[in-house]
Design a protein around this nucleic acid. Sequence first.
DNA 1: CGGAATCCTGACAGATACTG
DNA 2: CAGTATCTGTCAGGATTCCG
Lengths: 128, 128
Amino acid sequence: MSVQFQAPDDVTIDPRIEQLVTDVIGRVADKWTMLLLEVLEQGGTLRFTELGRAVDGISQKMLTQTLRQMERDGLVSRTVHPVVPPKVEYRLTDLGLSLSAAFCGVWNWAATHLDRIEAARAAFDARG
Amino acid sequence: MSVQFQAPDDVTIDPRIEQLVTDVIGRVADKWTMLLLEVLEQGGTLRFTELGRAVDGISQKMLTQTLRQMERDGLVSRTVHPVVPPKVEYRLTDLGLSLSAAFCGVWNWAATHLDRIEAARAAFDARG
DNA sequence: CGGAATCCTGACAGATACTG
DNA sequence: CAGTATCTGTCAGGATTCCG
């Protein structure tokens, strides 16, 4: 464990915090999670198939998988109604809502600077 | 043009924006990019190997690759000094700085709610 | 309806070796 | 020092099928 790479004090981030935070972000900042966050924030309480239709392009596998992870992390609550046909509803917890709010900044940033990125990319590619 | 996305079912997000934004976020929100963003924000101008030492666990391949992408997207500037031995310096552009700021919210969220997530996860796992 | 189980593939990360 | 090149294994994720 303690390989401790001779850290020259200056710019290094505390490895523990770094580990934990990037770990959390890594699980939370993927495409489907963000889209589900967005959809659930706007839609309130939604069923499985409704989510599937709302998030364009998601496979049922990834929908299940992502929802499970989000449930596990306490971002969404899952309510099973014992009826036939089955009815399962998902909604954001307060934790999920707060994350959604935090992501708002990144979302806006992306929407705002989209063209600048495209431009930078085009320029870079043009330079070879 | 007023395309005004004829929402067939309630909660759908405009596919174009969704596409573009998630695309941008997808490239920008990966582990190494975030860590480099953080390190560069704090460290100012840094050399290749300094970055390698600052970001614990990154391979030189991923460092190169991630820096290239960030440069392509206009997030970092790369300056080659024609000396021997070679000296290449990286620093955030204003675009990169703004992204770093935007991510700050998510970063803080993760740091703040880390324990709640761990707790939720433990509870979930305990329930089977 | 809301999943779980299975199979399959291509993208990508790690290790290694070489270079201007 | 700051990369490039290659090879290889892993694994995320799509398609498909089946079930309570």
